[in-house]
Simulated scan of single mutants.
Amino acid sequence: METTIKILIYIHAFFGGVGLMTGIGSVLVKKGSSLHKKMGKLFTIGMLTSCLISLPICWLPNHQNIFLFLIGLFTIYLVISGNRASSFKYKSKADFIDKLISGSMLFFSVVMISIGLYCQLNAIENGILFTFFGGFGLFMTTKDFIFYKNASEFNKKWLSKHIGKMVGALIASITAFIVAGIGIGNIISWMMPSILGTIYIVYWNRKIVPKKENLVKA
């Protein structure tokens, strides 16, 4: 059994590596270019495959880890919703799938926050991580539903949502590399990539807003 688990972990790590490399590549190349789109597809395949493999591993003997299971779900949400954000370039209304994805993550975010608060109240180690990432998930999914409610008015913000979600998924990949690959598993190594990544997302959001405003005026 343990041999099978190790094989699954190696496959998980391989596709995670594919996601990490293509994710970094898609950030470095010109946005919207053919190479960017190809790398984005490979990033999506790599991250989804890696995360889907990790989910059952988190419930196998000697590998049970509810936190990593929930982080895997969070990453899947980021990748799928980040890809679907591009569809709002052409549509003005969220469909059932959009709402199901965001609603599911909203539920799991509340679960993460609840576990985090319980751990913190009972002095259980690393409870803050549940609260931290659950808070991020709650914030993102709440913003999703605000966007869906006014999609026809805010559909020009699809690029901002696409960048935010896909960079968020890349942050998850970088964090996994630092924690699992390098072996640095303290709270700072878990939280710092998200903090720095958020700053990067804010930078890009501010960079693309003027272009949108100019496009509207034109």
Rank of each mutant, 00 (worst) to 15 (best):
T4W: 09
F15M: 03
G17W: 15
G17Q: 14
V18G: 03
L20C: 06
G25I: 00
G25D: 06
K31A: 13
S33I: 00
L35R: 14
K37E: 10
K38D: 06
M39D: 07
K41I: 11
K41R: 12
L42F: 05
F43I: 00
T49M: 04
S50A: 14
S50T: 10
L52P: 05
S54A: 14
L60H: 04
H63K: 15
N65I: 02
F69I: 00
L70M: 06
I71N: 12
L73T: 03
F74G: 03
I76A: 03
I76P: 08
I80K: 13
S81V: 01
N83E: 15
S86L: 10
Y90A: 03
K91N: 11
S92Q: 13
S92A: 10
D98S: 12
K99T: 11
L100R: 05
G103S: 07
V110S: 02
I113R: 12
S114W: 10
S114M: 09
L121W: 04
E125W: 01
N126V: 00
T131D: 05
F132H: 00
F133E: 07
G135A: 04
M140C: 11
M140Y: 10
K143S: 03
F147A: 04
Y148H: 07
K149Q: 11
F154W: 15
L159W: 02
S160F: 08
G168I: 01
A169G: 10
A169N: 08
A176G: 07
A180L: 14
G181M: 07
G183D: 11
N186F: 01
I188G: 06
S194V: 02
Y200N: 02
I201Y: 15
Y203A: 06
N205Y: 03
P210T: 01
K212G: 09
K217Q: 12
